[in-house]
Design a protein around this nucleic acid. Structure first.
Lengths: 364, 364
DNA sequence: GCTCGTTCTGGCATCGATACCACGCCCGCT
DNA sequence: AGCGGGCGTGGTATCGATGCCAGAACGAGC
């Protein structure tokens, strides 16, 4: 007498998930036939098709993606390295966009939060390479060598809101234009003492491995300066404060306090902050001094993350965060097939949009 | 003459990544030996170890995690289903915590944003099951059946900040206590007309598949009511507005406007909002009416997401977001091994913390 | 009657890493 | 001298899905 087939054992809730073999046994056909029904390709007679479909349903079969990937050599995954999805919503916004576009390619996105730690970043890149991801996006880079690691492995790399010497694809917004628009908006309102709070484009120059957003910062600063010049105004060094990073709020805050504590005739009448979070901090400082925004002080932010939730709602330069993520994924996936794209890195440039809300008005 | 071995072909940047076999060929040993060096187990002589390590380095070998997982039957992945990591930072905070704890188990977290769409949610759960994730966390649920889907598959499930009849592990904060503390804080300051803005615990009752955070909402409402009763105050139905969901701001806003437009002697002197985002909206409404916070109106939020960025900084009930995620992962991983845990769902309850900032003060 | 093409089905090697088993060797102990 | 055990190494089945190839059955056309 024949021995009891494997598939007779109870496929209960706690046992291993069913395999193609299990289903084949249950239906009394070969695994090949089950696979054909599953993917609806090849020739299968109506009768056996019904038989197999019943067996599939009974066993609660779910395809094993791990085995499938090994066999087909397609991981269907995209890695995304970034600072942290919280608390700065900028990263979460980009991540969300990348997820949307990845879905169009049947891919899922693996997010790696580095928290600015180069070791975590390196471990993240290596983990992604081991998983054979189809592309890697960098929305922050702490150590430039980690980008090279990915490039050397032959994986398509796209840097988001970041421009460096490393030859990879990139997608950024027109930061110069964004900063110019913001400053011009204040100038057109009649402001003449306009301060700028940003991040030093030259910071990290001593550390060759951490050129944090340098070009982006330079562009924003240039946009501010050029707008002033266009209006025939000199750049007052005392009205420009550049921190070490976007997360270095402490330094920025003390500078702002000095400005706000100055007598009205020497105080800036408007401030352009290159990040909504910094702008939020300034709002609080102004509030503590009973300075009215926009009455005594106009304020423009950057990013449009927190801006709409603030009081008053903040005029800001909107970055198309989700679109940055989407374009990054498309660029990466296109370069997989297009041979020319691999050798000639491409840079996509999106436009920002000045969102005028209630934090800006003509000076008193 | 022997044919040219495979590994002689250039392992250049654009070719397939090296396999154990490639490395073995290069070093002139067996794959078994290479594996032994790689994992530093078993016996390997110093000489061959050096040989193999050189070969590993030369070929830029990165282990193939896909093959490894198929063979070891461990996906080292945890799925996390949530509404969306942006713009509400609550989810991002929980996700971050889950990622941290997952790392302790050598796991990575796969985030699925459902955007409140039951079809996306279902597809997400199925994708996770197909990847054979070791556990699934639900920080939002749109369709209860999707939880059952995961449970039926035998995967450990943990619901975060959510209590339902479905018998799964859960981790929540003490919402009753949080709401009680917030209301009590206002009462102790001397407020007597305290309004409450929340989400209707009975909403979705008509739709059996979408009992959105019902218990959590009930607890928050009860905490508010009980604090009033403790002070011998009646509950004024006109001062309680419950929206359909946290994302249904429109309805909430119109109600708030009605309150704020009322004459001062009928206007609430304080509002307890069960979400920072709602509180931010109230701040803006108050500002537009030139009502001073906390002078004319005190305000308490919930979550501590946006709270510290607002003007004035918002008094709020802090939820330990990251800790929620961490505990959820620990609960899930523990239940994998502990048989008793599977049958007896466990609920962990974390404590909230009232963070007093500048949006609350005694009534005028 | 033979060939050819279409329909239907099963066998099996393969993706890459792992783990078990087997074999050979050298050394020390009885 | 013989034997057991610690070393050092290689062979190979396996995880589960895929896709090529083989082959059988049947009808149509010459």
């Amino acid at each position: 007498m024949a021995s009891i087939p494997d598939w007779v054992v109870d496929q209960g809730r706690s046992s291993r998930p069913a395999t193609l073999k299990d289903v084949a046994g249950r239906a009394g056909v070969s695994v090949t036939t089950v696979a054909r029904v599953l993917h609806d390709n090849g020739y299968v007679s109506g009768a056996t098709k019904d038989l197999v479909e019943a067996a599939l349903a009974e066993s609660g079969y779910q395809i094993n993606a791990v085995a499938q990937r090994l066999r087909t050599q397609r991981s269907a995954e995209i890695g995304h390295i970034l600072h942290s999805i919280s608390p700065n919503p900028f990263f979460a916004g980009v991540a969300l966009g990348s997820e949307q576009a990845a879905a169009d390619y049947g891919c899922t996105v693996l997010i790696h939060n580095t928290h600015g730690d180069p070791d975590i970043e390196r471990a993240g890149v290596e983990a992604l390479l081991q998983r054979r991801v189809e592309a890697i996006l960098f929305t922050t880079v702490t150590d430039e060598r980690n980008v090279l690691l990915a490039v050397a492995a032959g994986v398509p790399v796209v840097q988001v809101e970041r421009v460096t010497e490393t030859a990879t694809h990139a997608v950024t917004v027109d930061n110069y234009r964004g900063a110019f628009d913001a400053t011009e908006h204040l100038l057109l309102l009649g402001h003449r003492r306009i301060a700028c709070l940003g991040v030093n484009p030259n910071s990290g120059a001593s550390n060759a491995n951490a050129p944090h957003r340098r070009v982006v910062e330079q562009e924003r600063l240039s946009g501010y300066i050029d707008a002033l010049l266009r209006f025939g105004l000199p750049v007052d060094d005392g009205l420009v404060i550049l921190g070490e990073s976007y997360y270095d709020l402490a330094a920025v805050c003390t500078s702002v306090r000095r400005w706000l504590d100055a007598p009205a005739d020497r105080r800036p009448t408007a401030i352009f902050a290159t990040c909504d979070i910094i702008a939020a901090g300034i709002l609080q400082e102004a509030y503590a001094r009973k300075l009215r925004v926009p009455g005594d002080l106009s304020l423009v932010g950057f990013d449009d993350t927190y801006a709409s939730y603030l009081t008053p709602p903040l005029t800001t330069v909107r970055q198309p965060m989700a679109e940055l993520g989407r374009v990054a994924v498309r660029l990466a996936m296109a370069s997989r097939t297009d041979a020319a794209a691999t050798t000639h890195p491409q840079t996509e440039r999106l436009t920002t949009q000045l969102i005028v809300r209630a934090s800006t008005a003509p000076p008193a």
